[in-house]
Write a protein that binds this DNA or RNA. Structure first.
Ligand SMILES: [Mn+2]
Ligand SMILES: [Mn+2]
Ligand SMILES: [Zn+2]
Ligand SMILES: [Zn+2]
Lengths: 138, 138
DNA sequence: ACACTACTTTAGAATCATTATAAACTAATC
DNA sequence: GATTAGTTTATAATGATTCTAAAGTAGTGT
C-alpha cells in the first residue's frame, strides 16, 4: 500500500486514473529490478494467479495499450504469432531464441554502434534495432 | 509459356507439383529484376487483377507457406498487424517507414557488418538483421 | 489411352487473438 | 452527496489464418 503511491503518482501525472486494476498491473510490470518481456497472455495468466480480484482480459488490453501510448512499454514484433511487450523502453537489441521463442536483451557493450550510411529524402531515422536469431548449436 | 519451364523445373526439383496456380504465383513473384516485399493480401489482390482464372485464398496461403518452407521466401515481421514476405531470401537489413508501413531493403554497403560480442552457451547465431525505423522528417 | 494413387485446390467452416460495444461502476471535482 | 468523465467488464464482432473434406489433377505404371 505504500510504494503504490509511486504508481498512483505516475498514473495521475500521465492523465490516467489510478484504478486498482492499473495499480495491480503496474506492480507486476514495474516493481522489479530488471526489465522483462511478456505477452498479453503471460500477463493475463500471472494476474489470475497473483491477484485476488480478477481483472478482465479487455482491461488488460486497454491498460497495456495506454501504457504503450504513454511510453511505459514498447512492443516488439519478432514473428507474426508472437508479439511481446518490453518494460525496457529504450532503443536496444535482442537475441531471439528460435527454439524456445525466448527474447533476451543484448547489452549496449555487446553490439557496436550501428551506423546507417544512407538516408532517404524527407525521412529521418526513428530507431535502429538489431535482432539476432539464435538456435541450439550442434 | 516458355520461361514457365524454369519454374516448372524449380517446383519439380523441390518436390512440388507444378500446378497452374503455383506457376502463376511463381511468375508473379520471381519473374522480375528486383526482389520485393508483399503481404498475402497484396498478392491475393494482384492475382485477382492479373490472372484470368481465380486462385483461391487458401491456395495462396498453401503456396506461400510451401515456398517459405522450401526457402524461396522469407517472412519479415515488423509489427503485429503487418507481416511481409520477401523474395530476397538472403540475410539483409531493412528500413521500415512507420508513416507508410513500407519496407525497403538496405544494401550491404549501407550498414557496417554487425558483430555480436556475446554468445550464449549451447546456442549459435542463425541470423543478424537490423531494422531501421524511419519517419517523415520535420 | 486408361487406371490408380498421392498430391493439390477449393469453398466454406472453425479458430483465435484482438477490438468494439454499451451497460455498470468509480474516481475526481464541486 | 450529486455530477461528470473516465474506466471496467461481459459479451459480441471482426478479421486474419488454419482446418476440413470433397472435387480435381499430376505423376506413374500398365
Ligand atoms: Mn513467423
Ligand atoms: Mn504494432
Ligand atoms: Zn528488450
Ligand atoms: Zn527485404
Amino acid at each position: 500500500m505504500n510504494n503504490n503511491s509511486i504508481f498512483i503518482e505516475k498514473l495521475r501525472s500521465s492523465g490516467l486514473r489510478p484504478t486498482k486494476q492499473r495499480i495491480e498491473i503496474c506492480k507486476l510490470l514495474f516493481d522489479r529490478k530488471k526489465t522483462f518481456h511478456f505477452t498479453i497472455n503471460d500477463l493475463f495468466k500471472t494476474l489470475k494467479k497473483m491477484s485476488s480480484k480478477k481483472i478482465s482480459l479487455a482491461t488488460i488490453y486497454n491498460t497495456i495499450h495506454s501504457f504503450k501510448k504513454k511510453g511505459y512499454l514498447k512492443e516488439i514484433s519478432v514473428n507474426k504469432d508472437k508479439s511481446y511487450f518490453d518494460t525496457n523502453t529504450s532503443d536496444h537489441h535482442h537475441f531471439l531464441d528460435i527454439n524456445t521463442n525466448e527474447l533476451i536483451d543484448l547489452k549496449k557493450e555487446h553490439v557496436d554502434k550501428v551506423t546507417i550510411k544512407k538516408n532517404l529524402p524527407g525521412k529521418k531515422i526513428n530507431s535502429i534495432e538489431v535482432l539476432v536469431k539464435i538456435e541450439n548449436s550442434n
